[in-house]
Amino acid sequence: MRIEIDRDLCCGAGTCVLLAPGVFDQDDEDGTVILLDATPGAGRRAAVEEAAERCPTAVISIT
């Protein structure tokens, strides 16, 4: 699994951080997403998929 983010779209709602801490974080300055781990293990797939689906502005894509 490889994660890509389009940070320009991020509205800083932080849903991804809630669902997959350790994979995503929020910037302390502008609240936008920080990708901590672009290739997390298979065990995180469900959480990352839910984050991608629930991100309100479709920032996260998984390949």
């Binding site: 509205c11 800083g12 932080g14 951080v17 502008d30 609240g31 936008t32």
Partner: peptide, 15 residues
């Protein structure tokens, strides 16, 4: 709109 969200979001992060 994005400009305002960027300035404010840091005050509403989970942390």
């Amino acid at each position: 709109h994005t400009r305002y969200r960027r300035l404010l979001s840091k005050h509403f992060t989970i942390r």
